[in-house]
């Protein structure tokens, strides 16, 4: 019996614990098929690099969001935090190359710290994360506007390498996002605390009875989410050359879509960041395809909504039959 269990052919762990990943890959394949039919340039390597590059910002935020959702929570402060960090980046650097390193580090630390404050508030006030992070989002937006009512500062010319640069032909920002994703996936799998993220999301009451340290777990997930927001803020500042106080506003809800497309349960406890990465890629790919097909920007939103509805409905079906 136990021998048989050990002899069982092990699927790669990325796939094994992630039934949703298969779903998102199928969807990507579908979009590719339609794309190939629509235009012969769609399936080109260059186009894929483009799409990959366009995935960066959404991928970065959603990776952090995945963690909070895995732990049974949610982070609705991401949009404001992205706005704040992008404003601070360009405002503080203010076209002075000497400040780049210090400011980048400071911004990443700040983002992480805001995430940790979110976690502490959730623990200390015993309030649902939805509400805490919603409140935090409003506060951060206010702070951002106090700092800048319009576009603020500038980043030095070299800084936009983060957004447009290519290393060995690969877009730098997107590659960093992938590396971050892999790192977090490994941490989730090989750190005890990472496993406990799943446990907490699976059953919070059991986690309490077993004596898991909820505060630590929440610090990890909200801290990471804050870090990811700061990274997104940096990236957007690099891309636009300037920080804008409303630049992150749409990411709050948009960051949830890739997570769900990637097969992470919104109720927590199941899923992973790799799926999210592909989820973000799927959305960029879809927008790209619709561009190829000359579909108006407005209908792209409709298409996205339909994809979400279809995807979540299909996942539900699978869960039921199991």
């Amino acid at each position: 019996m136990t021998g048989a269990a050990n002899l069982r052919i092990e699927m790669p762990w990325l796939l094994r614990n992630n039934a949703g990943l298969a779903g998102v890959l199928v969807l990507i394949a579908l979009v590719c098929l339609v794309g190939a039919a629509a235009s012969d340039r769609f399936l080109s390597f260059n186009n894929f690099l483009n799409v990959f590059e366009q995935t960066t910002d959404l991928a970065l935020v959603s990776i952090g969001q995945t963690l909070t959702i895995l732990a049974g929570g949610i982070d609705l402060s991401v949009g404001s935090l992205i706005s704040l960090t992008s404003c601070l980046t360009s405002g503080l650097i203010n076209n002075n190359p000497d400040r780049v390193v210090v400011v980048v580090i400071a911004v990443l630390v700040l983002g992480t710290a805001v995430g940790c404050v979110n976690a502490s508030l959730v623990v200390a006030l015993r309030v649902h994360p939805l509400i805490v992070t919603l409140g935090m989002g409003a506060v951060l937006q206010g702070v951002t506007l106090l700092y800048a009512l319009g576009p603020v500062g500038r980043v030095p010319r070299g800084f936009n390498f983060l957004a447009y640069g290519r290393v060995y032909g690969l877009p730098l920002g997107a590659t960093l996002a992938v590396l971050l994703c892999i790192l977090i996936a490994l941490l989730l799998r090989y750190l005890p605390l990472g496993r406990q993220v799943y446990a907490l999301g699976d059953d919070a009451n059991s986690a309490r009875l077993v004596g898991l340290r909820r505060t630590r777990i929440l610090m990890l997930v909200y801290g990471t989410s804050g870090f990811c927001c700061a990274a997104t803020g940096l990236y957007l500042a690099a891309r636009f050359g300037v920080g804008q106080p409303y630049t992150g506003v749409n990411y709050t809800l948009a960051s949830i879509t890739p997570v769900v497309l990637g097969g992470t349960l919104l109720s927590g406890g199941k899923g992973g960041v790799v799926g999210t990465l592909f989820g973000a890629f799927l959305i960029a790919l879809l927008n790209n395809l619709l561009n190829f097909m000359d579909v108006s920007k407005h209908y792209q939103l409709v298409a996205q909504a339909v994809i979400i509805i279809l995807a979540v409905s299909v996942y539900v079906e699978r869960r039921r039959t199991m």
């Binding site: 919603l134 409140g135 935090m136 989002g137 409003a138 506060v139 951060l140 937006q141 206010g142 702070v143 951002t144 506007l145 106090l146 009512l149």
Partner: peptide, 8 residues
Amino acid sequence: QVQLIIKG
């Protein structure tokens, strides 16, 4: 701006 902070 402060309105937002207070609201939050």
